[in-house]
Design a protein around this nucleic acid. Structure first.
Lengths: 105, 105
DNA sequence: ATAATATGATCTTTTTATATATCATTCACG
DNA sequence: CGTGAATGATATATAAAAAGATCATATTAT
């Protein structure tokens, strides 16, 4: 099958958004407001139950101090390595959304 | 002002998709097919005339050998630097879509 | 426990992303 | 030059994103 790779992706993105929001101590309503969407809508996106528009995701990401980027797949490990030791810099989760390289947790 | 930051974003993404598609010598129809969307729809996304869903963008990106990532804004310059000297590795455009840090072209 | 705040969840309506079909134009190429 | 492929572009129909309201269930205080 492998027909729900995209479901994995939006679930993964949702987890990242939630984790980042928690670290920044923001409420769903605050983030939704900053991103210009409703709270129920933001909740769904965070829960990964439906896919936001690209513009919506960008707005949410920026509200959380994240930037959406499209990385050549060959460079993903390098970017990953660059991001991982980042934990102590701010207090952001050095986390990315490339739901491809899922290791079983 | 600054009310069309998202329009800039999808325009920028569209340019990246088109440039990457050209480098890979794929037709719009091929990419649309790989991404599971229609050719007219892919054309619009590439033209930046409307925002795709997140899942759609992910599918298109992967069809083009790109991966969508959410990067902490503080790390964007470093990731950028990592991506730029990448030109000679494959023949992919070492290019990203963070339409925020637009320098005059 | 109680009150307040944050989150989970569902419903109705509006907006828009996407499919399918179609036609015009441009681009490669024999 | 003309034939076909690739692209630009538009119209109608459908599916899904997003708003707004509302209620339930946590969660966190006091």
């Amino acid at each position: 099958m492998m027909a729900r790779a995209e479901s994995d992706a939006i679930l993964d993105i949702g987890k990242l958004l939630k984790a980042t929001r928690k670290v920044k101590r923001l409420t769903q309503e605050q983030v939704a407001d900053m991103a210009g969407i409703s709270r129920p809508r933001y909740r769904e996106i965070e829960a990964g139950s439906s896919a936001a528009r690209t513009t919506t995701l960008i707005n949410i990401a920026r509200a959380l101090g994240l930037e959406l980027m499209l990385i050549p797949q060959a460079m993903v490990p390098a970017v990953d390595a660059l991001l991982r030791p980042h934990d102590d810099l701010d207090d952001l989760p050095a986390f990315v959304a490339h739901p491809d390289g899922e290791r079983g947790d």
